[in-house]
Design a protein around this nucleic acid. Sequence first.
DNA 1: CAGCGCGTCACCAGAAAGGGTGATTTCGCC
DNA 2: GGCGAAATCACCCTTTCTGGTGACGCGCTG
Lengths: 147, 147
Amino acid sequence: MRHVLIYGVVAGLCVAILRLVEYRFLVLDHSLEIYGGLVAVLFASVGIWLGLKLTRKQVEVREVVVEVPAPANFVRDEAQVAALGLTPRELEILELMAAGLSNREIAERAFVSENTVKTHASRVLDKLGAARRTQAIQRAKELRLIG
Amino acid sequence: MRHVLIYGVVAGLCVAILRLVEYRFLVLDHSLEIYGGLVAVLFASVGIWLGLKLTRKQVEVREVVVEVPAPANFVRDEAQVAALGLTPRELEILELMAAGLSNREIAERAFVSENTVKTHASRVLDKLGAARRTQAIQRAKELRLIG
DNA sequence: CAGCGCGTCACCAGAAAGGGTGATTTCGCC
DNA sequence: GGCGAAATCACCCTTTCTGGTGACGCGCTG
């Protein structure tokens, strides 16, 4: 997936560079085309900046949601986490499960497919020795995996 | 699925490049401008996509530790219970749900049929405005209905 | 007594969750 | 460069859960 990004950027840059270099040997009345290239680069920059700007807003939204009247000072028992072999992603899904979200809702928040959530959830249940998600939540709180 | 995306993007870039190269040998000022615009849009799109893609995983929940007084011993908020119109039996089933039991298991402990448990559970979900068991548990703890 | 709240139980359809398997990609490590 | 862990996604099948409807008995109360 990252290759696509690289290819896209490289291809775009090559085109821009080629155009700029080639047109330097041509007459100046092609300056319009150069402007086109410049515009392209400019828009690419604006696009990236825009993308960053937009996602930063999402982060801000997440901060607002932080209103958990949960236990005061919760500290995760990392030893337990390691002992159970829970991965960061699995812990993340576990927390969302405990928040009462459905697999579909978790999928939306975690930016993955519902099937992926099922897979993670399944592993969590397995590692916690639970048969249902309610049981997993109960055990997770007992073991201080979540707050 | 992913291949389609990759092919689509690559193909699009190729076409764009070919077109640009082709029209380089023509002297169509206006079309050059058009393609310049297209390139601009393309790059803007790629930029946005790139920005979103790269920063996507930064959308993490920032846990701002809120100072909350001691959790102390649990005392049921009877006012809430009354306000929600929860019956004693429903509270009982709610606690067993929170313990991670299935309807069948709850039925055994409460000495009633599974269908009865379903009915109680259904009313609990309704009164708590929850769509799922896990959500009901979450809300019940928030509202101090259960410990 | 009639009505009401509560608890009990049943049936059914659809949604959600869980179990199992296999596959791909990415990353770090040797 | 191969290898394993982690993450991703898909498909199929079973179990559990949820929603809606209906019904019955019991005890309390107007």
